[in-house]
């Protein structure tokens, strides 16, 4: 730290470009969006600043359905991702052996294909005349007119698919760093498999559970691509509303108010989780404090 004390200005100099960019193109825009959200008017006549706080309550009452649906879909997708992801992360971490890296590669392979095209692929798989639907119709699970596309199930399945690796990777990272000697100790003390899992493995993997659920839930709740490509307006989420209000309708104040409500809700979710997990694990800055 000696060099650092000698040149007290250096850290600020290093920070300046990156932090400046974020202040200019992240923080300042939020200020403008706040300004926008308090304007009154119509898309045709234009909007003027008017301390129009009622935009917020109007936005909520007008789009409460889409809000609820977003959290419902995101929650479901997070839950399903966890149920699918935990055993997979566990198997890779503890049974992967020499295949571990190859298995991890398989987990991130979906990211090598553009998000939109991954979602289009599900459109191909679930399409009305596709093999999956006709098989399910033959077996009798789906009726003659039954479909998979444009349903709640297809949207949740798409969201789950697109964010599943975000769940698996942190789970794997936290499982992988568990010292196997702790598990050995559990067995040596005559713990049964279930005991060792519930009392050693699961508690030690909690940081991964918290990170994984957040990394899945946050992008899922703001998503509009899956609802657009795999659903209908009946599945539309808050992201769809914000996008169309901004880019198609031109109703900026409502869209801005909706954005703030969404962002506020997400930050609240993060802070509640931070309480549960401790902020250090969340910010990923554990090592720093100890070094300082």
């Amino acid at each position: 730290m000696r060099a650092g004390l000698k040149k007290a200005g250096l850290p600020y100099l290093l920070l300046f470009p990156g932090l400046g960019w974020l202040l200019l193109f992240f923080a300042l825009p939020l200020g403008f969006m706040l300004f926008e959200s308090l304007k009154a008017g119509t898309p045709d006549s234009g909007f003027l600043f008017d301390w129009s706080v009622s935009n917020y309550s109007d936005a909520v009452s007008q789009f409460d359905e889409q809000f609820m649906r977003s959290f419902e879909f995101a929650g479901l997708a997070t839950l399903i991702s966890f149920v699918i992801g935990y055993p997979l992360a566990y198997v890779i971490a503890f049974r992967g052996g020499r295949w571990r890296n190859a298995l991890l590669l398989a987990v991130i392979v979906p990211f090598f294909v553009t998000y939109l095209i991954r979602t289009l692929s599900w459109e191909t798989i679930l399409s009305d005349d596709g093999a999956v639907v006709s098989t399910l119709q033959t077996v009798g699970i789906l009726g003659e007119e039954g479909r998979l596309l444009d349903t709640t199930a297809s949207v949740v399945l798409g969201i789950t698919y697109n964010f599943l690796p975000f769940m698996i990777l942190p789970l794997y990272a936290s499982l992988e760093r568990i010292d196997p000697r702790l598990l050995e100790a559990g067995y040596d003390l005559y713990g049964r498999r279930r005991d060792v899992f519930m009392r050693v493995t699961l508690p030690l993997s909690m940081p991964g559970v918290v990170a994984g659920t957040l990394l899945t839930f946050i992008p899922a709740a703001g998503d509009f691509i899956n609802a657009e490509l795999l659903g209908t307006p009946r599945q539309s989420m808050i992201g769809n509303v914000i996008q169309s209000r901004y880019l198609e309708v031109g109703d900026y104040p409502t869209a801005a108010a909706l954005s703030f409500i969404l962002m506020g809700t997400m930050l609240a979710v993060v802070l509640v989780w931070a309480r549960v997990a401790g902020t250090e694990a969340l910010l990923g800055t554990e090592g720093e404090e100890r070094r300082a």
């Binding site: 193109f25 403008f32 969006m33 998503d223 954005s259 962002m263």
Partner: peptide, 27 residues
């Protein structure tokens, strides 16, 4: 504080990041 500030964009839905930036460009 800087560590926390850097974390906020990661916890913000993309649609909000895009919309905020557009608000500024529009203004």
């Amino acid at each position: 504080a800087v560590n926390f500030f850097i974390f906020i964009p990661l916890a913000t839905p993309e649609v909000v990041l895009g919309a905020a930036l557009l608000s500024m460009f529009l203004n």
